[in-house]
Amino acid sequence: MALSAWILTLIVAFFVGCDGILDEWQLFQPLVACTLIGIATGNMSAGILLGATLQMITIGWMNVGAAVAPDVSLPAVISALLVCGPAALSMKHGIAVAIPFAVVGQILNVFIRKRMGWLIHRADRAADDGDLRRMNRIHLVSLGIQGMRVMIPTLLVMLISPRYIHQLASAVPNVVTTGIDISVGMVAAVGFAIIINMMADKALWWWLIGGFVLAVVTGLNIFVLTIIGLVLTAVYIWFSNRHPDSSHDSGDVDELDDFDRDLDDL
């Protein structure tokens, strides 16, 4: 790999790491991160394809409230590097590699979030002095630390000889890699399950089943189904907003209380 490709990869890793904590621009989602690493290493199409596959695995991983989900940014960068870079692993190997790095990234993330208290106290001292610029700098330094969280492991992986990585990968028996490749279709269920679990209440299950049955029976293209979903949602909201003004009002309230009780029970 040329020097420029090295530097580009590290820059991408840094920004992906920054966005991994920000959760704003979504550079860290595999779809984008793997594509960028693919561009940096000169193997864009492999990066895009790996990104789309990893995206379906990580689709439900989200940091809600104070909970820290398995990391998305580090595995996206490392597997894209191993697949698109000089190690040239196959897609199956790239997917298998992603899971341990998701755990490593999560551990690093929690570690930094805990240690960040130290910087917060320095920000308090900046506030004691009324020094806005120093306070702002502390905020950006912590962003940089989160960028390093992905960049340094990426650098370490880059320093391992690609030939050695390739040998390691080919030492894994074919049964294991093919088995993992087959299970990617099943693993997608985990991500959807997280999302459904977050939103589910009794009435919503019918929407889930409706979407499912419609997709299976008609076999329509996903984009057409999305438009149908949008239309059905609009119709539903329009109807449910027309009724509460009439005598159904109290009924609606009862129903909502039921949902709340269900949610509390869970």
Binding site: G185, M199, L204, W207, L208, G211, F212, L214, T226, N241
Partner: peptide, 26 residues
């Protein structure tokens, strides 16, 4: 509440279609 409801309803419908399209046991 309406916004949350609309998004939940749409989201669940789409999850249903995604399960049909993406989840596979070969």
């Amino acid at each position: 509440k309406v916004v949350t409801r609309a998004s939940a309803v749409f989201g669940m419908f789409m999850m249903g279609t995604f399960i049909a399209k993406w989840v596979r046991i070969d």
